[in-house]
């Protein structure tokens, strides 16, 4: 099992903690995929240290400047991700999870499908299947 965690804001600790504690399984491979606007994951990783407590292998990657959703989907396909997790950045007045442009592009992308789960701090797209 492989999980891609999209880091789309600097304050994603609650989302990442939720994903690591209750979504990913022991021994899983986790890819932190940061958007170019997020400069550094140092403080985030430090706060979550020791990562080994979660018993996952992780790597950090970055989407290129001027990326589009196809780059992201291609990355997920390349690493054969079974899950993509996206931190929830905001909620609407009626309590719904606010969907940003990137999340909308993933949700409506024709090449990717699966199960859609809304957590407390993260959106989890799992059981992913790809149409190439």
């Amino acid at each position: 099992m492989t999980t891609v965690i999209i880091v789309n804001a600097d304050d994603q600790q609650p989302a990442i903690r939720e994903i690591l504690e209750s979504v990913v399984d022991d021994g899983e491979t986790v890819y932190f995929l940061r958007l170019p606007a997020i400069r550094c994951l140092g403080s985030l990783i430090q706060e979550l240290n020791p990562m080994c407590n979660y018993d996952v292998e992780y790597t950090i990657d970055c989407l290129p400047e001027g990326y589009d959703v196809t780059d992201l989907v291609r990355f997920a396909m390349d690493v054969d991700a079974t899950r993509i997790c996206i931190g929830i950045t905001d909620r609407t007045l009626t309590g719904k999870v606010q969907i940003d442009d990137l999340t909308q592009s993933i949700l409506l992308h024709e090449s990717i499908s699966g199960d859609f789960v809304v957590g407390n701090h993260a959106i989890i797209l799992e059981e992913l299947e790809y149409d190439s």
């Binding site: 909620r91 719904k96 969907i99 949700l107 409506l108 199960d115 859609f116």
Partner: peptide
């Protein structure tokens, strides 16, 4: 999720772009 994609695609075909606000 698949149902969402079907619905969104059908609405986009008739009404142009669609902006997802929340879920």
């Amino acid at each position: 999720w698949n149902h969402l994609k079907e619905v969104a695609s059908s609405i986009e075909a008739e009404h142009g772009s669609l902006e997802l606000i929340g879920t």
